[in-house]
Design a protein around this nucleic acid. Structure first.
Lengths: 229, 229
DNA sequence: TCAAAGCAAGAGCGGTGCTCTCTTTTGTGT
DNA sequence: ACACAAAAGAGAGCACCGCTCTTGCTTTGA
């Protein structure tokens, strides 16, 4: 039971949440590098050392924010997918892509936290994996659906990739053709290349009307995977 | 004249170079976030305040390293391109892609500096533009070459992207079809998505045999642009 | 009831970027 | 050859950082 477990425990979860909220605000305002435990403590009227009762280090606080960011992105993508659940694979694919892009543009610093340079000396704990996988699972689901409806044209795969494609298929989506799994992973990485370039300003003075540009690229990615409609 | 302009000026350029070298070593070892002016000064046997005679701030030192990183990557890509200059567009394309990947894997922290999360509150000065453009210009050159040899199948472009594609063509490569320019920019971003995911560990436990995976993806990118051989 | 556990506070350590002042070194014009 | 101004280095110091340790106070549960 998470209710009625004593005032102290209740206060603990509330304060933990307040710390994460304040930290998220700082993250959004200044970026991960300037996220300071002392500033968070100041904002909450606490002394900095008190924060260590809730998060053993700054990195642990960052980890919590990373998981939240993955979940926030995953939730946004899943919501977008739900809202077009009764359409064809290609439309669902692009809807998820655009949800990812929209979330990233709305939360650039949180996007940077999860898909930008990793914090040096810090490796994400296994805890983050389920949250991080949500968007990928969405794409796998869409593709699987297309495969079951025979709406999937499997791309070809060169000989030197066949073994690895088979391995990825076994690990990630045993019911899909290996070539599709390989193409899917490539498309997944390429999607975040497009999003990252836009969020991180690489398209500055290069791409101006970015929504149609992105939508077109997302459709081409779907085609690369084998989705046709 | 850069030679014989007095012992003092000579010493200045030497010390500036030594500072950048030490900083680059720290960058490679620990990442940009842990690059410390004081540590650089220590390594050089100077006092930290003396560094400010050469770089007005830590960000300016970082900017210098960013330009160097872009140039280092550009040089690696151009060298790879030179070594296959007499082959077909597709082979040259993949050679450049693989040079980018190889450089990124060999210099992960420098790669993070230029293609990872931007340093918060910091916008790259215009000085970086020429260096940053080198890889892109290589791709444009390869594609232009294919176009001149009639070895280019222009992809299609949807109506809502036509205007922007035309604008990009005018800005970046007036001698290429608009649809190709649009595809080229998308491929450029997608390439760095693939490289970034590998360098930043996103492929951990997902893609294992990464060289053939990347090579295949690079070839597909070339096909997307319209290169056939 | 009362010991144990949880928690906030404060002081303090070693580190950071950066500024200011003072002194020394160095190149140059007379 | 000398004087003088510019350049460079040294040092102290400011405000900040993450983190630790000790000291008390409060809540909790046997």
């Amino acid at each position: 039971m998470s209710t009625a477990r004593g005032a102290r425990a209740r206060a603990r979860t509330e304060i933990t949440a307040a710390i994460k909220d304040a930290a998220r605000r700082q993250l959004a305002a200044e970026g991960a590098a300037k996220l300071s435990l002392r500033a968070v403590a100041r904002e909450l009227g606490m002394v900095s050392s008190a924060l260590y009762r809730y998060f053993p280090s700054r990195d642990d606080l960052l980890t919590a924010l990373i998981i939240d960011a993955y979940d926030s992105l995953g939730e946004a993508a899943e919501a977008a997918h739900r809202s077009v659940a009764d359409t064809g694979p290609l439309e669902r694919w692009t809807a998820v892509c655009e949800a990812v892009r929209g979330w990233a543009l709305a939360h650039p610093h949180e996007y940077a936290l999860i898909y930008g340079s990793p914090v040096p000396g810090y490796t994400a704990p296994e805890t983050t994996v389920p949250s991080a996988a949500r968007v990928g699972l969405l794409f796998i689901g869409i593709t699987r659906d297309a495969h079951e409806r025979a709406a999937l044209t499997a791309p070809s795969v060169p000989a030197d990739l066949r073994e690895e494609a088979e391995r990825m298929r076994a690990d990630l989506a045993p019911d899909l053709p290996p070539a599709v799994v390989a193409a899917l992973i490539a498309a997944w990485a390429q999607l975040f290349g497009l999003v990252g370039f836009e969020v991180f300003g690489q398209f500055h003075r290069v791409v101006e009307d970015r929504a149609p540009f992105f939508r077109h690229a997302a459709v081409r990615l779907a085609h690369e995977v084998g989705l046709r409609f």
